[in-house]
């Protein structure tokens, strides 16, 4: 059994840390893991995507369209951009935040309305949460990525729940650990 998780968002939102955390936890849980992402222009506000695949033995680091189990989206427009990767009964977990692409902010394109409705019209199960609101409540909007990882972790029973906080402690500098442990727990508790 291979699990395919696609993480998508906008450059600067912390998707890379989230995908690292997921991959390291899957490895700790004893799985073969591959992760693929394209950097280079990532910090310049472009669309960013990370493929994380784990299971007994992983060949390609890229998830096939139609085979993604969970799409973890950091921004609502990105959730629909990458939705074609989802498998039939796949799940979208998305931050409800909107970040306008340049074409939209300049008034040359329109940010699609009712993304949630479009997704549900295709029978795609979606959990939309105000992750950035939750992160701000915790005192730092930058931890929105770990809030989202908390939401994801709850849906990955094959990774022992004790692994996640241990990995957060291992991967983050001490001064950021408390905030991110809280963010992770908050994410788990949302839905």
């Amino acid at each position: 059994m291979t699990t395919n998780i696609l993480l998508c968002g906008v450059g600067g939102q912390g998707t890379l840390l989230a995908s690292n955390l997921l991959a390291e936890c899957a490895m700790e849980a004893g799985f073969d893991v591959k992760k693929s992402e394209i950097h280079g222009m990532a910090q310049r506000g472009g669309s960013v995507v990370s493929h994380v695949r784990f299971g007994e033995k992983i060949d390609s680091p890229i998830i096939r369209k139609g085979e993604c189990d969970i799409l973890l989206s950091f921004e609502e427009l990105e959730s629909i951009r990458w939705a074609e990767y989802l498998k039939k009964d796949g799940l979208i977990i998305t931050n409800s935040q909107h970040i306008l692409p340049m074409s939209v902010s300049a008034g040359n394109a329109v940010y699609p309305k009712n993304i949630q409705e479009i997704l549900s019209s295709k029978s795609i199960q979606t959990i939309a949460v105000d992750a950035i609101g939750k992160a701000k409540e915790l005192g730092n909007q930058k931890c929105l990525n770990v809030v989202l990882v908390g939401l994801l972790a709850k849906r990955l029973p094959m990774i022992d729940e004790k692994i996640w906080p241990e990995m957060i402690k291992k991967m983050l500098p001490e001064k950021l650990q408390k905030l991110n442990l809280e963010a992770f727990q908050a994410g788990r508790n949302i839905a």
């Binding site: 310049r44 939705a83 074609e84 479009i118």
Partner: peptide, 21 residues
Amino acid sequence: QMPETVKFEGLDIPLRPPVLC
């Protein structure tokens, strides 16, 4: 068979290319 995928016909998704910060 190729995996089945969901399609959003007619939906215009604005691109998000990199920009000067």
